Simulated scan of single mutants.
Amino acid sequence: MHRITVIGGGFAGLTAAVTAAEAGAKVTVYEAHHTLGGRARTAEGPYRTNEGPHALYSAGPHWAWLRQRDLLGPLAPLPPLEAARLRFRHHGVLRRTPPLALLKLARRGARQAPVDGDFLSWATRQAGEEAARAAAHYSAVAVFHHDPGALSAAFVQERLRRATRVPPEAHYPRGGWASVIDRMAARAWNLGVRVETLSRVDTLPTDTPVVVATSLDSARRLLGDDSLTWTGGRTVLVDLALRTRRGDAFAVADLDAPGWIERFTAQDRTLAPAGEQLLQGQIPIPPHASRSAGTDRADDLLDLAFEGWRSRVTWRREAVANGRTGAVDLPGTSWRDRPAVDRGDGVYLAGDQVAAPGVLSEVSFNSALTAVSLALGRRSLDLRRA
């Protein structure tokens, strides 16, 4: 029987553990914190927040994998009336529809963007500079970078298409992402996976293949490998609860600068106490900007879309996610150029900043499948069907 060690009990680590155990391996998971989930944890208490506006994209490979194993659980659908309350800030004014030229850039029939060029230059040639900037800023909902226009055109185009698809790909597990993590953990336990929480690993075991499913920073320190770096974003996260008011926007996308605010209780009222609404804003900022640069912009968006919000606040929390929002690809690079999954000597990486395709959590999922397939000496296709 194969033995595999997984370091990290987040989404990537649990995906690796379940996949390996289903293939017959004996798996041990080490998690440094007292709970599993990593960035997919949902806060306990009256306000059920995630670290970032988590969503599952239904066209991704992890959607089918979770559904086949009955791990998706109940989803929180967005009522049609709420969906109609998506708003856009453009030229400082709140609008109901985005520029038509933006939609032209996002449609599936648009010309394939190049890897080597930046998105703003390519999109300007296709639809004009105004539409290009609006499209770049809108893509921040899936990019988490302060200047999406400077990134690889192919990288941004893929995320723009996925984020604007109709009907929407984004789906929300009822109760937050912790509900999915709990079901994955139960699946792992039923398969015989051994899970050790509060177990920080400082030295790699040498008697089993190891899947390192941590942040890239943690993996770099653990492996002593300075090459494990990749560009990421820096994003201010603003969580706040407001007393309920009819007519509030479901979400507001900033087309004048990268930024997004979403009312998560629009689809899942269990995330906040009765009579309150839970919102989260994600405002990307440059590497050396202060947190207030993001919170001030979030407040401006709130002023536009949530009338009287300042007098309705019942709770607020702010944080900066630095390099914790996934990889971004600069012009001339793609996911293939990121740190390889196979590190040699039976060590494999999994996570959202390594060499695997996909959008958002799909990168963690795909890298976990690849890591396990390599560790077991099997083809990824076999494991996807397992």
Rank of each mutant, 00 (worst) to 15 (best):
M1G: 11
I4D: 01
G8K: 03
G10D: 02
A12W: 04
A16Y: 03
A16G: 10
G24Y: 12
A25F: 06
V27S: 03
T28H: 15
T28C: 13
E31G: 03
A32L: 08
A32Q: 14
L36A: 08
T42D: 08
A43Y: 01
A43I: 04
G45F: 07
P46E: 12
P46K: 08
G52K: 07
G52E: 03
G52I: 08
Y57Q: 12
H62T: 05
W63A: 02
L66Q: 00
L72F: 01
L78T: 13
P79C: 11
R87W: 03
F88Y: 15
H90C: 05
H90D: 07
G92F: 06
V93H: 12
L94Q: 06
A101T: 13
A101V: 00
A101S: 14
L102A: 05
L103Q: 08
L103P: 00
Q112A: 15
A113W: 03
D116Y: 09
D116F: 10
F119E: 01
A123G: 03
Q126Y: 08
A127H: 02
E130S: 13
E130V: 10
E130D: 14
A132E: 01
A135C: 09
S139A: 15
S139N: 09
V143M: 08
H145M: 09
H145F: 11
A150T: 11
A154H: 05
F155Y: 13
R159N: 07
T164Y: 06
V166W: 13
V166M: 13
P167S: 08
P167A: 04
E169S: 04
R174T: 12
W177F: 14
W177K: 05
V180S: 00
I181H: 00
I181S: 04
I181L: 10
A186D: 15
R187Y: 07
W189N: 12
G192I: 09
V193A: 08
L198A: 14
V201T: 13
T203D: 12
L204D: 05
V210N: 05
V212R: 06
S215R: 08
S218V: 14
L223M: 15
D225L: 11
T231S: 12
G233P: 02
R234T: 04
R234D: 02
L237H: 07
V238K: 00
D239T: 08
L242D: 01
R246V: 10
R246M: 07
D248H: 06
V252F: 02
A253I: 10
G259R: 01
G259A: 10
T265F: 03
T265K: 01
Q282N: 15
P284H: 09
P286S: 10
P287C: 02
S290A: 15
A298W: 07
D299S: 12
D300H: 13
L301R: 05
D303M: 08
D303Y: 07
G308M: 10
W315D: 02
R316G: 03
E318G: 03
A319F: 04
T325C: 14
G326L: 04
P331F: 06
R336K: 11
R338G: 00
V341S: 04
G344M: 08
G344Y: 05
G344H: 05
D345T: 09
D352E: 12
Q353K: 11
A356H: 00
S364C: 11
F365P: 00
A371F: 06
A375K: 06
L381S: 15
R384H: 12
R385P: 00
A386V: 12
